[in-house]
Design a binder for these strands. Structure first.
Lengths: 345, 345
DNA sequence: TTGTATGCGTTATCAA
DNA sequence: TTGATAACGCATACAA
């Protein structure tokens, strides 16, 4: 690979002049500039990012740390973020924390040592030590989806309390009283918020929450299946379920299929987050969706702003999306369920 | 961030000794080794990868270039690859070519300038110049999913001809003669292979291929919807469809839904590639699937082998997966279709 | 307007 | 067994 020396030699100038010229300095004569450009082209010169990074103390890379790269919500976010960042000459280093705080921290340390220009992070960190570590990082950072208590950083995500509240209220107005919540990981911000939204709405309608109907998962399909199975085989099964995310809802639907339980006739199902396959699953899911592209765009914008010289002075910003309700065919009134059971053999 | 100098100062040795010691050289006394390790720990030293990369001429990063980061097939592959590479201390730089050869080449140039240790590439390159460029790259590379004609490199993917042949044969044996093919991008290797498999099987059974029933798409859902719509509104619509990938099949299914066409009663649908939602879509898709994790594992192994000192001498290897047939409810015999239409008002 | 020299943090060569 | 020094490729302060 051609280096700056090759260009300098060919253009018969010093390497500093080449550097100056190629970085658009004013103080280079039009004549030599042309010579240098020609030389650079003819040897196919492009600066070594490693050398630039070493010199500058940071590289033109952005780290993206997510819990599950195969989750459609995150993979769409990644797609969009990469798409936007590439236009700003940033490369995206992606790493999966697997929802594990220890691993997440290890990744962050690696990214920090790589001198990435910024990090987009969907954090699963909760312990005070880890939060302190986050604070100690002097790298532009934007949190997406999950907020971290005690860490004031840019954040882009939806109003999670509202999201589960919307679904819960709808189910209650549909006549349900015995509603289960397929929740996310305990302690995780989004999970807690969604849980709170569920509880608050139940309380607002004077309904008691059966704690045994709140089962936690890791936002993955397998656990969604298992936890749903657990609640569905009970004689006092719920008449409706609020799933904390799309993939767990899918697992729950699968469980109903396997048990032969009709959705929505016997059990209504609702979920937070859209998925590419939502339109063709049967029944169509009733859900509240976040505009993942909007999240990606705002996160990218926040991050790029922070990488500017004045970026460090920007006070933490937040962009909270209002989730959108999408009515499907996965909910029905429990009256129907009762009559369905009556008519069963 | 602490540098090697800090460690040297604290341990009261020269930086070269520190480097020697920390890189596990034999010729460092146990005593000084201990001192150096303690010093390194106490200042929290970790070597600067940028400096290491500059010195070594390559960085501990692997580039992964895919057409669509949101396609579940690719996102699952990415997940698995990242998962395996992180254990080998490699970071994954991911970039989307969007199926565009020009962009793909630009990305490859960027990755090359970054001195990545290797590249996993799902290539959409076809032109001789671009192929020549691929050949000129002196970076360990493994092709996945798509082969590149004229470029002998490691390859991991499935037998695409066989994949579409399996579906086509099944449909023919079911009684179909008027079969459409929702194909991939013309000129693209997998697309051509799948197309060939379809044609060869049709020919083997003495069936003529209606060229107007071979419509090409870019493996994306939108185009799948549009192209399917195009063939489904025809009075002489096909009785069965072989979709070249999962996402396009999804689009086709959506089109049937919108038109009120029953699947499989009126039109049978089959697809190549699994998807996380395949079990809960209605009807369950009949498909041939590739084990994407196996692809990821083999690709990673091939690549890591190539990054070893002896790696360059390994002759190009291939790992061709035999696709697996998965019977769903999305196919029926055209007899049924006829009777269905007869019974229609 | 251009050139010289230094340093970014490592590794490696050669001396000591 | 350890240390001084060069080199990787670039950007920049300072000289000319």
């Amino acid at each position: 690979m051609a280096t700056i020396k090759d260009v300098a030699k060919l253009a018969k100038v010093s390497i500093s002049t080449v550097s100056l010229a190629l970085n658009g300095s004013e103080r280079v004569s039009a004549d030599t500039l042309k010579r240098i450009q020609d030389a650079a082209n003819s040897v196919g010169y492009s600066p070594n990012p490693l050398a630039q990074g070493l010199k500058a103390g940071r590289s033109r890379m952005i780290g993206m740390v997510l819990a599950d790269l195969a989750n459609p919500f995150y993979s769409q976010m990644l797609k969009q973020v990469e798409n936007l960042l590439i236009d700003h000459q940033y490369l995206v280093v992606v790493a999966s924390s697997r929802g594990n705080a220890k691993r997440e921290r290890a990744i962050l340390e690696t990214l920090a040592s790589q001198r990435v220009s910024g990090i987009i992070l969907s954090s699963h960190i909760t312990s005070p030590e880890d939060v302190a570590y986050l604070k100690s990082l002097k790298i532009p950072m934007v949190l997406v989806d999950h907020k971290v208590d005690g860490f004031a950083a840019d954040f882009v995500g939806c109003d999670n309390r509202m999201a589960s509240a919307m679904l819960t209220e709808r189910l209650i107005r549909e006549g349900h009283t015995r509603i289960a919540h397929l929740a996310g990981v305990e302690g995780l911000w989004t999970a807690e918020e969604r849980n709170q939204g569920f509880r608050a709405t139940m309380a607002a309608f004077g309904l008691e929450v059966d704690e045994s109907l709140i089962l936690h998962g890791d936002y993955d399909g397998d656990i969604g299946y298992k936890q749903a199975m657990r609640m569905l085989v009970r004689p006092d099964k719920p008449t409706a379920v609020v799933a904390a995310n799309n993939v767990m809802a899918l697992g729950a639907l699968q469980a109903m299929r396997d048990l032969g339980i009709k959705c929505p006739e016997e059990v209504s199902l609702t979920a937070i987050d859209d998925a590419p396959w939502s339109k063709v699953i049967e029944p169509k899911m009733t859900m509240v969706v976040q505009d993942v592209n909007e999240i990606a765009e705002m996160a990218t914008r926040f991050l790029i702003d922070r990488t500017t010289p004045a970026g460090a002075d920007i006070p933490p910003r937040e962009h909270i999306l209002v989730p959108q309700f999408v009515l499907g065919q996965s909910i029905a009134s429990p009256v129907k369920a009762a009559s369905f059971q009556d008519s069963a053999p």
